[in-house]
Computed example of a mutant assay.
Amino acid sequence: MPRVPFHYIDLRTFCYATEDEKRVEEALQQFLPEEFEIDRVENTGHHGDRIVILSARVETADGMRVVLDQLAALDSIDRVLEELDERVDDNCSFFLRLDKQAAFNGLVRLGEGITLRAKVEAYPAKHEKAVANAREAIELAGGDADE
């Protein structure tokens, strides 16, 4: 894929007191380049329980290609492409929610637990242009995965 039409890709998940932080970090790492640094912020929930927010921002083209290659493995990639108009907002951001448990097991599925937000390059910054660019990037990543 020669061009990656994103400014950056953010991935974020929460680790609740009932979860093993190392396992949650491994689930997030599933979508990131090797040895990618994950930011960690500790917080307290409404009932005083510990919540750790794990996040990463991928800003390099090579790093974003790694994330896109993982997304290409989605068994429901056709569904994502069909819903692209709703998954890209008026600020040219593309959103997906991924299954945290599946990611820990090395699988890529839509679900709960990991939020992906990608800022789509679009000139001019219009919804339609952002949708077209996101579609191109996802389709190209899917094509690379088939080769």
Rank of each mutant, 00 (worst) to 15 (best):
M1N: 03
R3P: 04
P5A: 04
P5F: 01
L11F: 05
R12A: 13
T13W: 05
F14A: 15
A17I: 02
A17S: 13
T18L: 03
T18M: 03
E19F: 05
D20S: 14
D20V: 09
K22M: 06
R23H: 13
R23S: 11
V24G: 00
A27W: 02
L28A: 10
Q30D: 07
L32A: 10
L32M: 04
E34L: 06
E34S: 12
E35C: 04
E37H: 13
R40L: 13
N43Y: 07
T44N: 02
G45K: 07
G45I: 01
G48N: 09
R50N: 08
I51G: 04
I51K: 00
I53P: 01
I53G: 00
S55R: 11
A56R: 12
R57K: 06
V58D: 02
E59N: 07
E59I: 00
E59G: 04
T60A: 08
A61Y: 01
A61C: 01
D62L: 07
R65D: 09
V66F: 10
A72P: 08
A72H: 08
A73E: 10
L74Y: 11
I77S: 12
D78S: 10
R79V: 13
L84S: 15
L84K: 15
V88T: 11
N91V: 00
N91L: 05
S93E: 07
F94W: 12
D99C: 07
K100I: 12
K100L: 08
Q101E: 15
Q101H: 11
Q101A: 12
A102H: 14
A103I: 06
F104K: 00
F104G: 09
N105L: 12
L110Q: 15
L110V: 04
E112V: 09
G113I: 15
I114T: 14
A118D: 03
A118I: 05
V120I: 05
E121R: 03
Y123P: 01
P124C: 07
P124D: 04
A125E: 09
H127N: 11
H127E: 10
E128I: 08
A130S: 07
A132G: 03
A132I: 08
N133H: 04
E136Q: 10
I138S: 14
I138N: 07
L140C: 10
A141K: 11
A141N: 14
A141F: 06
D144F: 04
D146Q: 14
